[in-house]
Design a protein around this nucleic acid. Sequence first.
DNA 1: CATGAATGAGGCTTCATTCAT
DNA 2: GATGAATGAAGCCTCATTCAT
Lengths: 213, 213, 213, 213
Amino acid sequence: MGRRKKEPSSVHRHNIASAAQELFMQKGIDGTSMNEIAQKSGYSKATLYVYFKNKEEIVGLLVLESMEMLYDHISDALEANAYTKERYDNICQALVTYQQEYPFYFRLALSEINIDFTHADFLPEEQETFRVGEKINDKIRCFIQDGIIMGDFRPDIPILTTIFSFWGMMSGLILTAENKQAYIAQEIKISRKDFLSYGFDALYRAIAVRPAD
Amino acid sequence: MGRRKKEPSSVHRHNIASAAQELFMQKGIDGTSMNEIAQKSGYSKATLYVYFKNKEEIVGLLVLESMEMLYDHISDALEANAYTKERYDNICQALVTYQQEYPFYFRLALSEINIDFTHADFLPEEQETFRVGEKINDKIRCFIQDGIIMGDFRPDIPILTTIFSFWGMMSGLILTAENKQAYIAQEIKISRKDFLSYGFDALYRAIAVRPAD
Amino acid sequence: MGRRKKEPSSVHRHNIASAAQELFMQKGIDGTSMNEIAQKSGYSKATLYVYFKNKEEIVGLLVLESMEMLYDHISDALEANAYTKERYDNICQALVTYQQEYPFYFRLALSEINIDFTHADFLPEEQETFRVGEKINDKIRCFIQDGIIMGDFRPDIPILTTIFSFWGMMSGLILTAENKQAYIAQEIKISRKDFLSYGFDALYRAIAVRPAD
Amino acid sequence: MGRRKKEPSSVHRHNIASAAQELFMQKGIDGTSMNEIAQKSGYSKATLYVYFKNKEEIVGLLVLESMEMLYDHISDALEANAYTKERYDNICQALVTYQQEYPFYFRLALSEINIDFTHADFLPEEQETFRVGEKINDKIRCFIQDGIIMGDFRPDIPILTTIFSFWGMMSGLILTAENKQAYIAQEIKISRKDFLSYGFDALYRAIAVRPAD
DNA sequence: CATGAATGAGGCTTCATTCAT
DNA sequence: GATGAATGAAGCCTCATTCAT
């Protein structure tokens, strides 16, 4: 291969991680070889190791990138609207969109790779990922507090507990909509959108001042 | 190794699958080698292949076994009590217990391996697994219908949608309690039990006739 | 499996060897597992080792058996007729038939497993095989001597040299007819029978008193 | 192991195939493991897979290489001399030399691996092998036609039939000379050279205009 | 910087063979 | 005698990673 133009290192990192992401999505992390990543990204296998210490670091960057995108999605969702319910719906939509765009990392974020400080291996990327996670939490916290102030959410709800339990329940709902897709369509005969709305609304009522139904 | 006592074949299968389960849990399916399964189960690697055609078949049995246990857990939960809320709590508890006992398959059931008819590969074990899944659905359906009849659940709730969305949300909640364990304990300073109750109750209210709060 | 009726050991040996033969023919010796032989023969894998010390011994018996059949074929061919050319044709036909019936052992006899006293491993079966080979040679020697006496073969031909070179050439011809079957049919447009006759006749003329053409 | 000097890839392929050839010769294809090939060739096992997709491909290259050498041997044999009998003897000698140099592939060419269009798997190497086989046939065809024109061969001989039957018979003869070597020397007390000449001459007479005896 | 080349380690699976019953 | 059960050894192949250039 000819040498390529001098580009900032981060561009190459992104190119590689990007190719990896698609493959991971299709075949899982373990199911994807560095060889395949090399081929898909157009770099040589050895070059991968110029930009990443190892496979794990690729995953790390990917998780960080996806976490940042999630942050952006959620930020946007919150800034756009004034009414609490609308903002809530926007957050839900942001999550759904995010899952559709980065199904692989949505799953990761939910379960597999655990980004809490327990097993902080302290790779720089992981630290950063954690930080972004905190920023997301903050955003949500503000949103809930705003909602309380605006009289839309019950004033007695435990904020942190709500954030985490909702995060879990929403993720589970979205994942189910994804995984049981065919089943839901054929057996329940309901659109994915309605299926999701049903769940999101149920959750909203749980913290709303008066059942908004 | 010495020969071992004559035991019915199913015992060996269970021994092996059991060892596999623990390893899968710790390191994932792909991350676990047949070598490790052999060592942990106390059989020789070759013997594994006497009892299972290949690694995949071990996973298959495990999924089936765990699905059956889930069915038992849920059956018990439903038969034990008369009051709808109690029965609901029992189901929740059954799921939590199940997740604690078979964390790996709880995860599977939620996401990766898809037990709907979409990708019915028709391995006998997989077929059976699907059937058990259906039995579980039926149980839940009856429970909800009973709840409606007893006047505890709103009569207009869409039953199938509720089953699937609740399944997703509950799984997500339980998984979060598991994965963010340390975070929840240290940051929110709330017990896992309370964390889970908060979520389960929120969901209950969503279908209960009158907010039980 | 239930025990089977008491049969002379040789019957079981034959059953097993027989099953092995078919498999060897289809998939080669190395390509055939004891497992497959066990299944095909209807005995358990362990029982194979009651009747044969190991896989090699099965091959040994098979070679012996096939050598004996070849002897029978050739004996019959020689005793049937009076005229030299007829007897010659019969021998050729015997070889062809033998190759069709035992393609695998025809090949062995020609090349792979070498039954000359050089590498006499002195397994009883191999010794016996060698002895049968000698008996075949004797038969042919007599045939040639008869032919000379009858004035059909040139009196000066070197008998042993003729036996061995003819054995080689005939085998090679037959094998080619078998292996290039499709090619011969499609490209040369000649029947296998005619193809073989052409070669056999050429060889006959080489030792006949007057070109019989 | 240290890295080795930069050599064109084909050199490595040849090195590996060459080592494989010797082993195949001694122990057969199935009897030879990639491990052994690695050791004998001085490369690591993994490196074998850099240069060959799998074991089969090694065989493929070997067959092709040997086929090409055979072509060269025969080409040389034909171009060297003017008299038909001399050219015939040269061809025979070429075959003998070839068998001595590549005993393993001589055997293959004769029997096992079938290079006719029947089972054209269409691997590039196999296609090429087939093509070379055709070139050899052409050379021989020309030789026979020349012989007829020069009045040395009978004008009525069926050319293709002759080519194939002679190829079979000659191969069989050469193989017998090889396999029964010890036997021939000790029992017949004749040199291999004379043994072969006897057979080749017999075949020559079968197509020569007048028995050259 | 970029990479072709090389490889140790290890994965899954199969097999011939043994042994206690 | 017959076999179910068990296994050490080995086979093919893949992979993440390193290093010299």
